[in-house]
């Protein structure tokens, strides 16, 4: 906490800088701490993958970045700096303008974020004209261009289709066309391919990668699929119970991970790029309640190594500490133990 306060006074250096973000929801059952002290930064041209279990706070984080939480039922604190402008303390109107010009989001389910009664074209045109003072004709031409860019065949005809006339993959493309129509500097994709078949997923991931190169955008991709993050990300943030438990470069995270939860994720997953393992290594138990978050490490009830810490895992919350260049871990185990466990016990079984 004191460390965080010290940072607060410094000016942001990165394109996107998130500091000690907390997003809490007061509910009848108690305070839901969906995001509880999250800090990270991201530069343009780079992709950050956020992974974690269902309910770990990934979507709440992304909505927070876009300033989309209703202040009436969400308590948001901390700082989000986007290109020098702070979002948490900005007025809804300021944030709305930023959202059109600088940042954009691709949602998991394009149907729910597109209006069923308007054509695809009309929706792209509207999104474009909010922030660009152009005629309808020019905007329509832009919409057709965008549909073409995302690989919709015969875009000049399909521009007048309604969302239900598109297949799932095409809707996701149209959604991307809409998100990109203002050349966003920050693109947030929340489970952009979860509902899609693998062949369509591959097309969409290619598309995101190509468009990012073209616009030099900063991209945040949120997913529970480690394969997807490995394909796309430069850096990875692993979330558990509303906090970051491990952060680092993609190579480091896959080849030398140091948090027991990250190990658990890797061991749970059958892999096509390895010989078939005899047995998967699931993480026991289930994810924590965000209302009564365990005192110490949120992962302790499920962690196979908690007992090595003489009770600290259950009583004291581990800080996120830098253990190497750009690699941060929140775990009480000491470094030597973590490396030994990974080398001797975890990696050989993967």
């Amino acid at each position: 906490m004191t460390e965080q306060d010290a940072i607060t006074v410094q000016a942001p250096r990165a394109f996107l800088e998130v500091r000690d973000l907390r997003i809490h929801f007061p509910t009848d059952d108690g305070l839901v701490k969906s995001v509880d002290g999250l800090s990270f930064s991201l530069e343009r041209g780079r992709t950050l993958g956020i992974v974690g279990e269902s309910g770990s706070g990934k979507s709440v984080t992304s909505l927070g970045l876009l300033g989309l939480h209703n202040r009436k039922n969400a308590k948001v604190s901390g700082e989000i700096w986007l290109d020098g402008q702070e979002i948490v303390g900005s007025s809804p109107e300021q944030v709305r303008r930023l959202r059109g010009r600088k940042m954009s989001m691709i949602f998991q389910d394009p149907l729910s974020s597109m209006h069923p009664f308007y054509t695809i074209g009309a929706q792209i045109i509207e999104a474009y004209r909010i922030h660009n003072d152009v005629s309808k004709q020019v905007a329509r031409k832009h919409a057709i261009d965008m549909l073409d860019r995302v690989g919709i065949p015969q875009p000049d005809k399909r521009v007048d289709d309604y969302p239900h006339q598109f297949s799932g993959g095409m809707r996701q493309r149209a959604m991307i066309a809409m998100s990109l129509s203002c050349d966003p500097e920050l693109l947030i994709a929340d489970e952009p391919t979860t509902a899609l078949d693998v062949t369509v997923q591959a097309q969409i991931l290619d598309l995101i990668r190509d468009l990012q190169k073209e616009f030099n955008s900063a991209v945040i991709i949120i997913t529970h699929d480690l394969g997807v993050v490995a394909e796309l990300s430069d850096d990875i943030l692993v979330m558990y119970g509303g906090r970051c438990v491990e952060y680092g470069e993609v190579e480091e995270l896959f080849h030398a991970p140091e948090h027991p939860y990250t190990w658990g994720l890797l061991g749970s997953m059958p892999r096509l790029d390895r010989d078939r393992s005899d047995r998967l290594m699931p993480i026991k138990g289930s994810p924590p309640s965000l209302i009564n978050v365990p005192e110490g490490c949120a992962f302790s009830p499920r962690c196979a190594f908690a007992e090595l810490n003489e009770g600290r895992s259950e009583t004291e919350r581990p800080e996120l500490r830098e253990i190497g260049p750009g690699h941060r871990v929140a775990c009480h185990l000491d470094r030597a133990d973590r490396r030994r466990l990974w080398d001797e016990e975890i990696r050989p079984k993967l």
Partner: peptide
């Protein structure tokens, strides 16, 4: 098309 969870071979 299956994404492989190994960044070194992507």
């Amino acid at each position: 098309a299956v994404p492989v969870p190994d960044p070194s071979i992507r």
